[in-house]
């Protein structure tokens, strides 16, 4: 019983270590907009002075979709940095920089408030 507990702690520790080791050189987060959703926001990728993003609005989408890059500096709230309208189908990509470390995230939002019927995905990351 005791060895089972030790094993599970070890597994947890290794899993955590793996998570952190992925983040040594960077982090990324996906934003996946389903046809049933009216918007989606990726999780924040952590502090970095820049972020790369890429997004794709599928040809099956009913509308154009905005790819919004947002950043939050320590002590500040989320603010918009860039907003690109992707046609259906359409892509958006780019890099955004900050002079200090900021947290970054990507929002995918069909052009109309509350609109659904769009399939899009995107990724935001730093390496």
């Amino acid at each position: 019983m005791k060895s089972k507990k030790v094993f599970s702690y070890l597994t947890l520790a290794v899993a955590l270590l793996l998570c952190f080791s992925v983040n040594v050189y960077g982090a990324s987060a996906n934003a996946i907009l389903l046809a049933t959703e009216s918007s989606t926001v990726s999780s924040a990728i952590g502090l970095s002075t820049y972020s790369d993003y890429s997004a794709l609005n599928s040809k099956d989408s009913a509308y154009s979709v905005y790819a919004n890059v947002q950043c939050a500096f320590p002590g500040k709230s989320w603010k918009q940095v860039e907003s690109t309208l992707m046609a259906a189908p359409g892509i958006a990509n780019g890099t955004n920089y900050a002079t200090e470390n900021a947290n970054w995230r990507l929002e995918l939002n069909p052009w109309g408030w509350g609109f659904i019927g769009c399939s899009a995905n995107g990724i935001i990351s730093y390496d």
Partner: peptide
């Protein structure tokens, strides 16, 4: 950059 990121991340 990690191998999996490089291979799977469209960026």
């Amino acid at each position: 950059i990690s191998k999996s990121e490089l291979e799977n991340n469209m960026i």
